[in-house]
Design a protein around this nucleic acid. Structure first.
Lengths: 233, 233
DNA sequence: ATGAGCAATATTTTCGAAAATAGAGAATTT
DNA sequence: AAATTCTCTATTTTCGAAAATATTGCTCAT
């Protein structure tokens, strides 16, 4: 009876382990858990209410995603952030996202167009409602993620999509980090609209150029504003 | 005392879980564990001598690599092989490997050249010693893997390299599968030599073209000879 | 003081029992 | 017969105690 209250709640995943991975991922990406912070089992057990093995399984998942690093026999810690890593990540993202967008544009059907348009619409609505710093807004972040996901959703490449998603999370951590130190968010609304138009206009070359520059510019901005907190690498 | 004999031996990884992941990966790639075969904990416990949690951790790792699939609450099974998956995999591999080779050629130093040359040399020696079906040979497979690894080793992209390595494993499973049904292995020695020459000759365009065609041709052959055992997808 | 060796402590890693869940088959109703 | 519920079994999932390993801090000889 009373144990139910103490027990960990499953909200996202179907198993406790995947649920905890989900929550941990979120805390790492939003930098509530800071880069390099060591992830001790006792502490995790306290805050997540799960056992050693379950936590270990969740951490294993996050290691594969590059958000956590494991030093065998010496525990886990939140993956460090470095300029080197940011550049590596940016390069990988551009390579993969460009390919996925091109293929999405080749293969996308009516449903795909509708998804892209409606995701952009939702994004725009949120930006209107909170014209100030919408970029810190969780709702905006979710809509932003979904818009970019929609763009590549018709690519038909599950393997690359899975990689893309994990890279997106890693990149979002850097974005959140730089947001802490940035005076005012860059206005991406125009870029998103242009991307949508190139996409549903089936202008693959232009869409690829736009996404590459979108990712690169964002990365450059992160590097600029987060320079202080990012170790030299 | 006697328990030591029963206890699982750590050979590869430093923790038992990573060691078991290593052994499982090998069994899956070599098709000792067949596609779609369900991975029951009782059976695994018997053959690997580890506990539930440890096995679960190892399996989680392999799920991330795409060699195992998990159906939550319904256990794990060896990832299926399908034509669709082979095509997806091939596409992803070409995209990534081409990028890595190009960058390796741009950045590779003297040590890199030496690594590439000596890996090719070892490969050639093994092929000489066992001119018949060297492709079934574990030693050749290892040397083959190392040669291709050497080619991309100077790319300076840890993220893409990690993805590449897991895709290589997935592809090797398909190669092993088709080898079972193929009358006689294709002779890749010439292609490998040409790759080496383009690489150390710093002819990036040619090396990229060669690797793309190398991967594509291998994949086509797999599709041809393994058609019977690969589900339609 | 300095470093080597050795306890004491902290932390991770592994284990197998116990709880939770899914699946198969029999019994019951419509 | 078909559908539904119930039971029993097979299997996965979770837990926290116990073992293994790393780390810290102390003692003592140099």
């Amino acid at each position: 009876m009373t144990t139910t209250a103490l027990k960990a709640r499953k909200e996202f995943g179907k198993t406790l382990a995947s649920d905890i991975a989900h929550r941990l991922r979120n805390e790492i990406v939003t930098c509530q858990l800071k880069p390099n912070e060591s992830l001790k089992f006792d502490a995790l057990r306290l805050s997540f209410g799960a056992s050693f093995s379950t936590l270990r399984e969740a951490l294993t998942l996050l290691v594969a995603e590059g958000l956590v690093v494991a030093e065998e026999q010496r525990g886990y810690k939140v993956a460090p952030v470095t300029l080197e890593d940011l550049h590596d990540l940016t390069h990988a993202r551009i390579l993969i996202e460009v390919d996925l967008i091109r293929r999405s544009i080749e293969r996308g059907d009516d449903d795909w167009e509708i998804r892209v348009i409606s995701c952009l619409h939702r994004l725009a609505k949120i930006e209107e409602r909170a014209p100030e710093d919408y970029a810190g807004n969780a709702e905006w972040k979710s809509a932003h993620r979904q818009f970019h996901e929609a763009l590549v959703s018709a690519s038909g490449s599950p393997t690359l999509l899975a990689v893309r998603n994990s890279l997106f999370d890693r990149a979002e951590r850097y974005r959140n980090l730089s947001a802490l130190y940035r005076p005012r968010p860059r206005d991406k609304a125009g870029e998103h609209r242009a991307l949508m138009q190139a996409g549903i206009g089936r202008n693959a070359d232009q869409a690829c150029a736009l996404i590459a520059s979108h990712i690169q510019t964002t990365s450059d901005n992160v590097a600029k504003y987060a320079a202080g907190v990012i170790s030299a690498g």
